[in-house]
Computed example of a mutant assay.
Amino acid sequence: MAATPALLVYTRTADYRHDSIPAGIAALRGLGGSRALGVDATEDPAVFEAPLDRYAAVVFLSTSGEVLTPAGRRRLGAYVEAGGGFVGVHAAACTEYDWPYYGDLLGARFDRHPALQPGRAVVEDHDHPATRHLPAVWHVTDEWYDFRTNPRGRVRVLVRADESSYDGGGMGDDHPLVWCRDQGAGRVFYTALGHTAEIYDDPDFRAHLLGGITWAAAR
């Protein structure tokens, strides 16, 4: 009998640690259960030094800093290149600054954010499992991440931030917030949302996460 496919949810932090991580794990366990996916949540970098083939996708849930060993970096890169799915949530963009491949994999790296506040997220592309359920303008309270570079042109942008709807944005009119891309034979999905514990109880955000994971894991 084949093993049940699973998600590997990685939450190791070597820099800022989000209080919302337990809520995120609980939400992912619930989503996994709805799709008969086991969820292995860990902060042990040794998990990346073993084969990752049984995982439908690897999720970096608000990781931060340098969280992988050199061997783990090689294993994760090989997994994605061979067709594995990778999902980054929120502070996943604040991770592995010393590993150039990771920045290319994710599409952009975190730069800064203003204060936590409500704002508007504009859905650019409804033809994706992570966004097809969302309204054209999605009202969200979060940290509105700015990125060191604009990933547009290297990624498929799904949602952008409307900087006129909140204070302190630094990227201007073109501010990607959620995107996806191919990497080798694998798929990568990233959402900058996910700062608060409360957002993981929001049905729209949970469907957003499930859609991103489903898409990334499709190969």
Rank of each mutant, 00 (worst) to 15 (best):
L31P: 05
A136Q: 13
R219K: 13
N150R: 14
V67C: 04
A6N: 04
H126Y: 04
L106E: 00
F189Y: 11
G186S: 03
A93D: 00
Y101S: 15
L116V: 14
G65H: 02
T69S: 14
A130Q: 01
A108M: 10
Q183G: 12
G194Q: 02
W179D: 03
G103Q: 08
F86Q: 03
A207S: 13
D127C: 12
A130F: 10
D167T: 15
Y102F: 14
T13D: 08
Y101I: 06
T63N: 11
G65W: 07
E163T: 07
R154C: 13
A2F: 01
D40S: 12
Y190H: 11
I21V: 13
R75V: 09
G172D: 06
I213A: 01
T196W: 11
T11S: 10
A185G: 15
D19T: 12
A108R: 08
R12A: 15
D142Q: 04
L193P: 10
I21A: 05
L116R: 04
A207C: 05
L31I: 10
P5V: 07
A218I: 12
Y166F: 15
G169D: 03
G212P: 10
P51S: 11
G65R: 02
G85A: 06
F205Q: 06
A108P: 09
E43K: 10
V123W: 01
V59T: 03
E96W: 11
A92I: 01
A56H: 02
F147G: 09
R160E: 08
D201M: 13
V137T: 15
A56I: 07
E66D: 13
A217Q: 02
L52W: 02
M1G: 14
Y97S: 13
M1N: 12
G83N: 04
L158R: 11
V155K: 10
G184A: 07
R206D: 03
A192R: 10
A161Y: 10
A23Q: 05
R17P: 04
G212R: 00
H126P: 12
T131R: 09
Y102W: 10
R120S: 12
L7E: 01
A3Q: 14
L52Y: 08
Y97N: 12
A82D: 11
V47T: 04
R148W: 02
D182Q: 14
S164Y: 03
W99T: 06
G24Q: 05
V140C: 05
L177R: 13
D173S: 15
A207D: 08
S34H: 15
L105P: 00
F110W: 11
H133W: 05
R109A: 14
G38E: 15
L52E: 07
L193M: 14
F189Q: 00
A36N: 14
R73A: 06
R112I: 11
